[in-house]
Amino acid sequence: MSRIARRFATLRQQGRGALIPYVEACDPDFDTSLAILRGMPAAGADLIEVGVPFSDPSADGPTIQKAALRGLKGGSTMKRVLEMVAAFREGDDETPIILMGYTNPIEAYGPERFCADARKAGVDGLIVVDMPPEEADLLAGPAAAAGLDIIRLVAPTTPDDRLPVVFSGASGFVYYVSITGVTGTRTASTDELAHALPRLRRATDLPIAIGFGIRTPELAANAVSVADAAVVASALLNTLEATLDANGQATARTVPAVLEQLRALADAVHAVRK
């Protein structure tokens, strides 16, 4: 069983939902982002998304755009991202790591080599924002060969008759983009979520994570009361950004501030009994 499947199975046994925080690689530098990544499990992260910086994150809002730029300035390359995951794995063999990014850096690295190296580094799953099922053949073979889960995105605009297309070849879990929009902007209402989830449950047995616009402990708790996991990205990145000095460098506050906020989110998520 993969780390992702194992983690969701354990959570289900315990009657709990999952918190999935996001950290952008090399934001604002390699060591800081690695320190955040390493601190996340103890702060309550059940799975972790590691953002792979890309110069043109066209599905992301201003917060992640800025984080990606800081990551690139901080020396991020695909090689560095994988080194970061490998360094994390030295001390944690349980928490699933999902890389989230765009197609081009993967294509530039070479899909086969990328999947093999990602697996070696300890990556468990991939979310490729601009790779819908129609284009998934680029990664499907290499990912399967390396034992990496391809996590599919599903949106409010995805009609019912398209759900089987989206879920074919999906594994690990399903990521529900809860709003039509970019990351870090609007928040889906409880009503919208209550309406959306049964529709997805009818089409898949995979665990469902909700992302986009979850910024407070209440919203996170709300999300896991209907879904299996909540993804929090922009809220943590905003906190990180607020701790940087005038030159955009990390300060002594950076790592603790992000992890404190994560702990508050995790407490709220874990208080929900399922």
Binding site: P132, E134, R152, V154, A155, T157
Partner: peptide
Amino acid sequence: RGRFGIFGGRFVAETLMPL
């Protein structure tokens, strides 16, 4: 699939795909 040889295609977020 919207391809000219290997070029073209539809590399967009799922939100846009139905559109």
